[in-house]
Simulated assay, not measured.
Amino acid sequence: MSKSPVSYKRHRFPPAVIALAVWLYFRFPLSLRLVEEMLLERGIVVSYETIRCWAKKFGSDYAARLHRKVASPNDIWHLDEVAVMIGGRKHWLWRAVDQDGYVLDEIVQTRRNTKAAKRLLIRLMKKRGCRPKRIVTDKLRSYGEARRQLMPTTEHRSHKGLNNRAENSHLPLRKRERMMQRFRSPGGLQRFVSIFSAVRNLFVPTRSQHSASAIQLHRLSAMAHWNDVAGFSA
């Protein structure tokens, strides 16, 4: 069943302006104040606090409507975790990407152990609907134990040099973390990455798209889909 259109009731700004502000904030390493300045240059006077409200209210709605990559039993899951400081306490953002660098899922947890690794794998299997051909991880033993308990027949390659794809997937978020001067709560981080990665999945070309024309066509198609999801025509 298709979802009902995004509702903009009781919002005085046009949907195109709201969608543009949300897109700028999640697509590029921009602060709320920089998005405010970019909109002002276009003659749109809106405060950064309003943009913050738009990002929180409409970001998740947009992300939930974006196309998702179809799962395949031939997929390769690259798994990795990265430390994020929140309120002076270390948390771990566990991430899974596939062979094309497409972000499959992310989950914020306080632990870096087998229980946390199992939680990531369980979420992945539920969301993807099938098990992968192979998982690739670093040398953290928790992955191996979790894999043995949940998917014993799935191939597992554990080597730091093989997992650059997952490790590189952390870099865009690190840029945003510096721009935002860190995250203020685990829930806030979880909400942000769910939207941030969905937008990035849509707009970043696949590894097979090398030519300038292919990249331009991909971006035009992505923008058209974004506008459709937001409920207006460009």
Rank of each mutant, 00 (worst) to 15 (best):
G144T: 04
L124A: 11
G129S: 10
N168W: 00
P132E: 08
K139Q: 12
L162E: 13
R147Y: 00
E155P: 02
V136M: 08
S158Q: 15
R123N: 12
Y143T: 09
T154W: 01
C130S: 12
L124S: 11
R131P: 00
V136Q: 07
P152C: 10
Q149S: 14
C130T: 14
A166S: 13
L140M: 14
R148L: 13
N163S: 10
R141K: 15
L162H: 06
S158H: 03
R147G: 04
K139A: 15
R148A: 15
R147F: 00
T154S: 04
E145Q: 15
G129H: 07
D138T: 07
E167Y: 04
L150Y: 03
R165Y: 04
R128F: 03
A166F: 02
Y143E: 08
R157P: 00
G144P: 00
C130E: 10
G144F: 00
Y143N: 11
M125S: 14
G129Q: 08
N168S: 14
P132G: 05
N164H: 11
R165Q: 14
Q149E: 15
P152Q: 07
K133W: 05
I122T: 14
N164A: 15
V136E: 05
M151H: 02
R128L: 12
L140W: 12
V136P: 03
T154H: 01
Q149R: 11
K126Y: 04
M125H: 11
T154A: 08
N163L: 05
K160C: 11
R123Q: 14
R123V: 04
T154R: 03
R157G: 09
E155R: 11
A146R: 05
A166G: 09
V136L: 07
P152G: 09
L162C: 11
K133N: 09
T153S: 14
L124C: 09
L150C: 04
E145D: 13
R165G: 03
R123S: 14
P152K: 08
K139D: 14
K160F: 02
A146H: 05
A166R: 03
N163T: 09
L162S: 09
Q149I: 08
L140Q: 05
E167H: 06
K133V: 00
H156K: 04
G144S: 13
Q149K: 12
R148H: 07
R148P: 00
E167M: 08
G144I: 00
K127W: 00
R128C: 09
N163P: 02
R131A: 09
R131E: 10
K160P: 05
R134N: 03
K126E: 15
I135K: 01
K160V: 12
L124E: 06
T137I: 02
Q149V: 06
K133H: 12
K160Y: 03
M125V: 06
K127M: 11
C130M: 10
R157V: 12
D138E: 09
T137R: 06
L124M: 10
S142L: 03
M125N: 07
G129V: 05
E145V: 13
R134I: 01
K126P: 00
M125L: 13
R134Y: 00
D138K: 07
T153V: 09
L121S: 08
N168Y: 02
C130R: 04
L121N: 06
S142E: 11
R128T: 04
R134P: 01
G129T: 06
M125W: 02
E145T: 14
E155F: 01
G161E: 15
S142C: 12
Y143V: 05
K126Q: 14
L162Q: 13
A146L: 04
R134Q: 13
